[in-house]
Design a protein around this nucleic acid. Structure first.
Lengths: 362, 362
DNA sequence: TGACCATGCAGAAACGTGTCTGTCAACGCG
DNA sequence: CGCGTTGACAGACACGTTTCTGCATGGTCA
């Protein structure tokens, strides 16, 4: 007791520890711990007394000590794949921003916090933070980071179905093939005769699945594929690719762009070539941005529902962390949403096509 | 030694600890720690030997134990102000996304990781994570979180100059008054006779400083202020406010919008009223989005340079954490950048639009 | 040859918490 | 009255590091 008092380094500099609270309340360390965590069997009077003393001393339990003892840190890693020199692209596109935001909210609601980590990092950064689990966005084939984490016994949940035989604990994804087929059918219904695709050169599963779905659709309906691919992380390359697509001799009369900026790029290219949208060219792109509601004309977009994905990923991960053997499948598919606007309707109905939605789309 | 061996809970489940490495290498714990951290005075042979054994065992030091011992976690909190029910708005606007991205990169480069935390949270989330310091975006007046953190002795650096007497360690901001004055002068030079403002109803310093700068400019040049204010977090309200501004009897012939979506909203409203941009209406808005390079017409934007701000904030914070008494001032002002496009030039320069190239160019 | 220092390494004390084990008193019951 | 049981709490250990202190050894110099 007096030892606990004097073992403090003389000064009052250090924050109050559990020993100080115990001494001030006249009880033992065990009682303090039990009282604050609601664990043991204590009379309410003691519990209240200890809590009041702790508040008065401004006691905050040490997160490091708690983590060391319990083995749980309450931290979840959030990893995004990287392109080029920048440590990560994070929010090149609105998708990541929305997804990360939803994931953070969901984690917070269950008492966890998110740590942003780069996929390509030296081990020192990763091992410097105690994680309970990790969310991986779009893991690449044979991702070494994922393998290492799984080897350490940490749960890993991925946004995007893992390529190859990546041993993730669970994953969440859209049905990209169904989404692309739906869009192509939608465009064909609107009168498109030759549908082009603006796609990427990267090998992630989203690009791959979408492109092969397009190719298979073309084969089925007997249309020659018309597409341009470009490195998706380079916005300038996107504008150039959009221009090239509309400059082709076999110019498409409808285009689906896989990436967020494709809409404005295609619109600008169409203007350069004197093509009217939707009269001469139908347009759809995959985007989470609200700007496409106010462009001239408004552009039909496919939403991957990143909010729902981010939430689902975190729920799955925390369930795995806390050992809740959820009976749900470890693979979860989130439906996409096609927001139909003027750009994909050859004969725009004079009624408001999409009812004025509230900003809150749940 | 044999005790360390048998004290492991029998199974091989647990990860290898420093004791296991020491035993396997035939040295003491001290030697292992020194060898891996490059601390003590050891012959290179021993150092190499220990490192090799550690690698072979897949040894990863426990971040929790290290944090508990050293008092440094390598974690930096990132807090953004919240509106309404959602835990935070994070990336309502591209600004936050860019800023957070730059901050993460800068932190990673110095061996730190960022933890996303909400400003309005119960203490349990905050005290569950051991932070070395915190970045606060746009702290509100008398922010209780900031006060609490400072009281605990943690460095706090804010993005946005702190309102009131908030005791932050340092802050970084733009010179918003100068930026607004520069835009107003730019618009006046382009021939604007009556400049309107689209502003917010919130009380953050950005909105406040920008609005007062506008009002003072109006007073100086003898123009009646023409502005509409709306809750900036509600995108629908922004569209409505833009419409209202252009529907006024004293309709402005130039508008500056303080928030990111104002550009497209104003453009849509102008179209509704048959106003041509820039002939009938000059337009500038504050945005980090690249979509304004490809709108019709392209819109002049003011960039707050969030990348530079995010980097500067983190550098300042880590300097404070590591006790680098930087001789730099604790207040750092980042210059803004006006990206002049067609929408703010009454006589658009003869931009050589790339002519429709022949389809044959490969 | 003894004093002294540099070198290479081991032992043990923290860091602050959660929790297992155990003690002590009171109490019901035969 | 003896004894098992239960409630309320204290003591002590473990979590896995970092680091302070200290011991042995061998070489150098007076």
């Amino acid at each position: 007791m007096s030892r606990a008092e004097t073992s403090r380094r003389g000064g009052r500099s250090s924050r109050a520890g559990i020993r100080d609270v115990a001494a001030a309340a006249g009880v033992s360390i065990t009682t303090v711990s039990d009282a604050l965590n609601g664990k043991g069997r204590l009379p309410d009077a003691t519990r209240r007394h200890v809590r009041e003393v702790a508040d008065r001393l401004g006691y905050r339990p040490s997160a490091a000590a708690r983590t060391l003892r319990t083995g749980k840190s309450g931290l979840i890693g959030l990893t995004v794949t990287t392109y080029g020199d920048e440590p990560f692209t994070f929010t090149e596109f609105a998708y990541f921003a929305e997804m990360a935001r939803a994931a953070t909210s969901a984690a917070l609601a269950r008492g966890y916090a998110l740590v942003i980590l780069p996929a390509t990092s030296r081990h020192d950064v990763w091992s410097n933070v105690a994680l309970d689990g990790t969310v991986v966005i779009d893991p690449s084939d044979q991702d070494p980071v994922v393998s290492e984490l799984v080897r350490q016994g940490l749960p890993v949940v991925s946004d995007g179905r893992p390529a190859g035989s990546l041993p993730v604990t669970a994953w969440v994804d859209n049905d990209h093939e169904a989404a692309v087929l739906g869009i192509l059918d939608h465009l064909a219904d609107a009168g498109a005769r030759r549908i082009g695709l603006l796609t990427g050169t990267t090998t992630d599963t989203y690009t791959h699945l979408s492109t092969t779905a397009y190719l298979r659709w073309c084969e089925r309906v007997g249309q020659d594929p018309v597409y341009e691919a470009y490195p998706a992380h380079d916005p300038c390359a996107g504008a150039v690719a959009a221009d090239r697509l509309l400059a082709r001799p076999d110019r498409p009369d409808a285009v689906y762009g896989l990436f967020d900026p494709n809409g404005t790029d295609l619109l600008a290219a169409a203007r350069r070539y004197g093509l009217r949208v939707p009269d001469d060219l139908l347009l759809v792109c995959c985007s989470e941005s609200t700007v496409y509601a106010n462009t001239e004309p408004p552009i039909t977009t496919l939403s991957l529902k990143p909010r729902r994905i981010g939430t689902a990923v975190v729920q799955l991960l925390i369930d795995a962390i806390e050992g809740v053997d959820s009976e749900q499948p470890v693979e979860q598919v989130i439906p996409t949403e096609l927001i139909v606007r003027t750009s994909s309707q050859r004969r725009p109905p004079r009624t408001t096509v999409s009812p004025p939605r509230s900003p809150e789309n749940r």
